[in-house]
Design a protein around this nucleic acid. Structure first.
Lengths: 246, 246
DNA sequence: CGAGCGGTTGAGGCATGTCAAGAGTTGTGG
DNA sequence: CCACAACTCTTGACATGCCTCAACCGCTCG
């Protein structure tokens, strides 16, 4: 593995505080690998043998049931996914595929499980990571159950604007098709609703979002820190969608 | 606190493996308290000062936004809730109210956070608890996004039957109104759909569920271990709804 | 150039929510 | 002990949000 990769991984909350020697032990048995676009990295139901760390590119986490499929999250550099499955030594609940060429580090799950028994700082980091992730999914579930699709879209657009520093215009970080699935609706419904949102203070031009009347959009989205963050974990990566830890 | 209470708490996965002396330290600063029915124990947004352990009774976790409300989980003895908020030292994402007279032990969150730095076994238990809880919420989100209301109801009824030991008849553990909210639909919709499910192998008589043609119900519900469990955490309590760790 | 894909738009249908009313049950206070 | 209020549950009528199917556009890429 490259030295720059190691440094980036070391900067993650998860690995930041552990002893250097222990970090090196973990990394010795790990290896980086590059995957082409559209490759299925893991399939839900498979045993969780490795913690995945995304170094470059992006990965979609999605779930399937009865022939249907939905996007659960998108993971961007530098962050990890499916930590929970690794810890439980349980089958993945979600599948993962690359959205573009993606470089990933694989850390053996058994080493992880051994390590947080030996390194207290690492154990604490894992606890914080899992607690944050748990809260992220709860926020997500709240949004799904309490908001209708129009409100979910408005909240998302507003939140993206905030993450970009409160700008009035930005480009969507994911395809609309994927965004629709993430937000729990069909692509057609997203497309139509985006149109009608022009009356509520936001204009869409292709992948570009232009907030024309922020107050109006806020009135519709009613952003809530107990749903839309702020969330330390989600802030850590630059993605529009929250990090998931599987 | 009563000695029986202490023993029951000690049997929880969360506290089972820690050193006895450390367990006693935690319990010294904790106290039990009984609350009447319908009391709001915590309000979403408030600081998470105490871990809650339900000894008797039952507690509903629910979320509110923009005048709407939905049930997120029901917690039954003996189990804990809002662990994640305690750990993050962050505001509750959910509110909680008693569904009946309920006895609860309150453990100061600051003591918890100090303890998993001192007791490795406790840290490992917290990690496992959080990882399980995370997976539970992910299952929940999958169910919401991949199934329609008819399928969610069928899955729920089937899962309840399994939890009761595969029996063909049992009594719903919660009011239908609450169940509807938990499953993400209106009470009217639940009532109507339960009626039409008679054609799919399950009959409802008040709060009693009678599975008349299991195969037919299974064909509709398409139960999936990656959504419906088995889940070690959910099994731990007798509730129909999964435990939540807030 | 043609195939494939993402996105948009329209027509139509179904699922789900809303509003309203009434039956049955529970709890309470006179 | 009864009357009443409050509540759950059910049912009907109706509205609407969202999905499905289909067609079409524009773009990319082989």
């Amino acid at each position: 593995m490259r030295i720059e990769d190691l440094l980036e991984i070391r900067h993650l909350h998860l690995f930041r505080d552990m002893a250097q020697a222990n970090f090196e032990v973990l990394m010795i048995s790990s290896y980086a690998q590059a995957f082409p676009q559209g490759l299925e990295l893991i399939r839900q139901g498979d045993p969780a043998d490795f913690l995945h760390i995304v170094l470059e590119g992006s990965v979609e986490l999605f779930a399937q049931w009865s022939g249907r499929e939905c996007t659960m999250a998108v993971v961007r550099p530098v962050s990890t996914f499916i930590l929970a499955a690794n810890i439980r030594d349980a089958p993945y609940l979600m599948s993962a595929r690359t959205l573009e060429r993606t470089r990933i580090v694989l850390v053996p799950a058994s080493d992880l499980r051994a390590m947080f028994r030996r390194d207290t700082e690492f154990a604490v980091a894992v606890i914080n990571e899992l607690a944050s992730s748990y809260r992220s999914v709860v926020r997500n579930a709240k949004s799904l159950k309490l908001r209708n699709s129009r409100e979910r879209i408005a909240s998302y657009l507003l939140r993206q604007s905030q993450l970009a520093g409160g700008v009035a215009s930005y480009v969507l970080p994911v395809e609309k098709r994927l965004l629709a699935s993430y937000l729990g609706m069909t692509a057609e419904n997203l497309s139509r609703t985006l149109r009608t949102l022009e009356a509520d203070g936001v204009k869409i031009d292709g992948a570009r979002v232009i907030i024309t009347h922020r107050a109006r959009l806020v009135a519709l989205a009613k952003p809530d820190r107990l749903i839309d963050g702020p969330d330390a974990v989600a802030e850590q990566n630059g993605s529009g969608l929250p990090v998931a830890r599987g």
